[in-house]
Design a protein around this nucleic acid. Structure first.
Lengths: 243, 243
DNA sequence: TTTTTTTGTAACCGTTCTGTAATATTATAT
DNA sequence: ATATAATATTACAGAACGGTTACAAAAAAA
């Protein structure tokens, strides 16, 4: 049961099993990883532990009502919450968006609409992430990195070494970029796996070696005596900026 | 709810109930008297009858689109109108068509920003389109874009590539234009969906691929080796301006 | 309305990329 | 010099990705 690295997880919170099943089925079909909770307390626990990418939350729940659940979750994490309501009257309560609910949908809903709303809200998050990043990250602004005769352009995903424009794959580019942002600094394989492959990556650590090999093949004059991407035996790799 | 004599009235025009409700709630909280309409015809009627102090107007509306509504209302009364748009392309229309809109805000908007804009427009402190433009910074209404031997005319919706005038559909034109305004910059499919299709678009991401294919068929000499609209594997598409 | 055009969806296919494992080579310590 | 540990190299298979096409749905035009 391999889980796709960027498969989105959705937490469904509803006390009615038939409704949960409908949602599980349909969202599963759309390629989401779906987890479920039938009461408010469990919902909060699951949200905090599993960190879903989006939560579908019924307003009527045993143990702890949806509004409180919403508040608590929003208090400790920033995940889009889509409220499910049975009556129009309940909408007023949700609309205190101080609660932090991002959207709501009234029962009975069309599955199509619900799926659409889920997608829209997930996309909104992505957009916000992007803009938030470009807001804060001064480093990100540096679309160009120059070290020695190595030149990286993060906007064009383009690399130049010794004047030549070199075609790297995305993975190769990311590894090189990570190293190039801290020239001279030796980076362990573990760090590279975590930062480039992602924290959830369970693969072999030797994968890094092979990727480095492939980068060298493209940027180094002589692969057997690397001048740019150098090995620090027993530690890791670094970009040599000493010249 | 008591109506204060100098309580300001705001007319919200949007066909989506959730959005209307969010706006009603938040603007109500700010002490405004809020009225609503869900289609263009009703909007015009309400505007003329109730004479609101400000109008929030979605551009996508049933019966009569936002642009026409704006024009009609501005024709018979002078009320500040704040347009809501879902995609970048629509901004050009608002700015270009001299509708008399006073400001615009793109979805998804933060409620905070929207409230701020409403206040600003009511105060008539900074009411004109120019300030909106400088807010949005990058938005330029250059009607002509030239990149390499690609030439776009946003006024005529006309494209020239290698001298030939080429007939693109609206969608194709918008995609090409978005890419051409930032040549060299690799743009993800997500960004294209967001900016061209609009944030409310719920469809498949591969739609972008097909549209790109169709554009290529029209502008490239050889579809199998694109020279103008190029793929960056694993990332997205860009206009090659390196030659 | 009906017809035509545009747009979106889905399936299929070939290519490129990526991780793994097996083997070879190199560096280091003894 | 030899043993050992670390890294380099290579080949290969599976996965990911994008291109392509045909068809369906939606929108626009007639």
């Amino acid at each position: 049961m391999e889980e796709d690295k960027d498969m989105k997880t959705i937490l469904i919170v509803d006390d009615e099993e038939p409704i949960r099943n409908i949602l599980i089925h349909n969202l599963g079909k759309e390629g989401y990883n779906v987890i479920e909770a039938s009461d408010g307390v469990t919902a909060v626990e699951m949200a905090l532990e599993q960190k879903p990418d989006l939560i579908l939350l019924d307003i009527m729940l045993p143990k702890l009502d949806g509004l409180s659940v919403c508040k608590r979750i929003k208090n400790s994490m920033n995940v889009p919450i889509l409220m499910l309501t049975a009556k129009d009257g309940e909408i007023d309560k949700i609309l205190g968006l101080e609660l932090g609910a991002d959207d709501y949908i009234t029962k009975p809903f069309s599955v199509r609409e619900l799926v659409a709303r889920v997608k829209a809200n997930l996309r909104k998050v992505e957009v916000n992430i992007n803009s938030a990043e470009s807001d804060k990250a001064e480093e990100k602004k540096d679309t160009k990195i120059v070290v020695g005769d190595l030149e990286l352009d993060s906007e064009k995903f383009e690399v130049k070494a010794r004047g030549e424009v070199i075609d790297l794959t995305l993975r190769e580019f990311e590894v090189l970029k990570f190293l190039a942002t801290q020239p001279g600094q030796v980076v362990t394989r573990e760090t590279l796996l975590e930062k480039v492959w992602g924290y959830e990556y369970y693969g072999d650590i030797r994968t890094v070696d092979v990727t480095v090999r492939r980068i060298r093949e493209k940027i180094e004059k002589d692969t057997s005596t690397p001048q740019i991407l150098v090995t620090k035996r027993g530690v890791g790799y670094y970009i040599d900026d000493s010249k």
